[in-house]
């Protein structure tokens, strides 16, 4: 098993810093869903991780803890994730933004 980043939607959707999307070294890995938080009645969207692209370097954790100071990202064993987004289920919207269609998806 290996570690992947997991972003807490409740904390992330209370802010709109998007720093982790800019500091991830992997392309198309941390994506932003503009509606993720609004469905829960929160102010903003939330970032999420395409776990099949994540290499587990934890740079986003450092950025979220030390630069943004939101502490929304943790490293989790991939089989311990209750829900996860994978590239094949992610759609890009015409007006910009992304939507993880079937995310949360069961990993197991």
């Amino acid at each position: 098993m290996y570690l992947v980043a997991d972003i807490d939607v409740d904390i992330c959707a209370a802010t709109s810093c998007k720093l982790c999307t800019q500091y991830c070294p992997e392309a198309n890995t941390i994506l932003y869903d503009d509606n993720a938080g609004k469905e829960k009645g929160l102010k903003y969207g939330a970032a999420y991780v395409a776990v099949d692209r994540c290499k587990g370097c934890a740079q986003c954790v450092w950025v979220c803890d030390n630069m943004a100071k939101h502490h929304a990202i943790t490293m989790v064993m991939i089989d311990q994730l209750p829900k996860a987004a994978i590239t094949d289920r992610i759609t890009y919207l015409d007006q910009g933004g992304t939507k993880a269609l079937a995310a949360p998806v069961e990993v197991a």
Binding site: Q22, Y23, A27
Partner: peptide, 29 residues
């Protein structure tokens, strides 16, 4: 622009560079 990252498909794809490499981050930017 950089502020739109995460909401469009980037031209860079999956690559075999080491996890957490700062060079990858620079190339992506």
């Amino acid at each position: 622009t950089v502020s739109q990252m995460g909401s469009f498909k980037e031209i860079l794809e999956e690559h075999p560079m080491c996890a957490g490499c700062a060079m990858t981050l620079f190339i992506r930017l």
